[in-house]
Design a protein around this nucleic acid. Structure first.
Lengths: 237, 237
DNA sequence: GTCTATATACGGATAGAC
DNA sequence: GTCTATCCGTATATAGAC
């Protein structure tokens, strides 16, 4: 699976994302015409991500946002009740999409080796397709309310657990070497996260997401696979 | 080399750090008595790190800081000209110490294998001894002025280069396998950074910095070392 | 050296016209 | 649905007393 193929299979346009957000928040959004809502939510989210990822969410004023979206401050407040709610919506949506797609794609694989590859690449490709969302989620997590912070931590642990359970299954079936499951999972996650945290560095060096993914796979598989190399015969489709 | 040994060899008390900051900023700091300055700088920096690492530097008000330091706002402004300068001082000091100690300790090693171990562990132990500083540097880098941001990026690339040059030397001498130098260095850095970025997670799991270091070494060496295992005989003292 | 009081600007949020 | 005008709290920074 390469990134191009992933993009074809998974629909992650800004429009689709905003339609989903509208569906979830139909009660609180005062504007009712779907076309209008989706168009303006796209502006609001993309502007928020752009400005926040440059100078931080706290430092972004509603006036900044108004200028970037070409909407008045009053109009924007038809779509969320407070700045904090805007932050929470972004975080929530990122988590929902990640969880859903990871689960779905890994579920299609049968062997632990294929699952591990799929988990790493899917996570990586998701973070590529939604890079500003992932970067934002990471950097702004500590500005959330206490309750939302707990959700963010839970989500982090959830994806880590996906990795560690695959590793466990592989160990039990004898195709992975015996390593500390939790620590291995943590390090894998760190490698995947570096892609979206330092994306401009990799862009400057002309490293594509496919190259990065292959490299991480080699790195991880060298550590995790048995020396008998039983991995070689189980590449995923 | 374990963390305990590192701590004995390297002096990184808050007091020493603040004395160094005073030395560098003698002209701009209006208070002149060294004892007073060092005492208050300790308060100011530790409070800034504490509050900022909880809710972000932008979200920390001077009133927050005043309360935590038990200094009035006016008094604090005797030590820096603006909030932005306070941010820059923290960043600058962290970089200066990191660069100096990394260079010094790696310089003492002779073989690439020993250098690699030393580079990884020294970076890790530094980030442990100064965890709030490292976390702060990472999370607040984008709030710096453009000029300071360039310094931060340069510093990031500098430490990455330290890794890639060791890898290069190892390849040339035939004791490391042939991998993409820059990418390998990036991933090593990502693994080391995860320690201070997710420190509370590791603390909850009772993973010590020594355990983490050993695990990262295994992970990295498995990827980088030749299968002949010529590493085994060159552990650093 | 440190404090209190204050200048000045900007923040989020809302009301009500259109 | 969107805009303009405005409320009111809080921000950084400074002046001048002690």
């Amino acid at each position: 699976m390469g990134y191009a193929e992933f993009q074809k299979q998974v629909n992650l346009s800004e429009q689709d994302i905003c339609r989903e957000i509208f569906a979830r928040n139909r009660k609180t959004i005062r504007v009712k015409k779907e076309g209008t809502v989706v168009k303006n939510l796209e502006r609001i989210f993309s502007a928020t991500l752009k400005i926040s990822n440059q100078k931080g969410f706290q430092a972004m004023s509603m006036r900044d946002l108004s200028q970037e979206t070409h909407l008045s401050i009053g109009a924007m407040y038809s779509y969320f009740a407070s700045k904090e709610e805007l932050l929470a919506m972004l975080q929530h949506q990122r988590r929902a999409i990640t969880g859903r797609i990871l689960k779905e794609r890994i579920g299609r694989q049968s062997t632990p080796a294929a699952k591990l590859r799929t988990a790493i690449l899917t996570h990586l490709y998701l973070s590529e397709a939604m890079q500003p969302w992932f970067y934002f989620s990471y950097m702004e997590a500590k500005n959330l309310s206490k309750k939302e912070q707990e959700l963010a931590v839970a989500s982090e642990l959830y994806t880590e657990r996906i990795f560690s359970e695959i590793l466990k299954q592989g160990q039990d079936e004898g195709c992975f070497s015996h390593r500390d499951l939790q620590l291995t999972a943590s390090l894998i996650k760190a490698l995947v996260q570096d892609w979206y945290l330092k994306r401009s560095k990799y862009a400057k060096r002309n490293i594509s997401v496919d190259q990065y993914g292959q490299f991480v796979l080699e790195f991880v598989e060298g550590f995790v696979m048995d020396s008998t190399g039983n991995m070689r015969y189980s590449h995923s489709a």
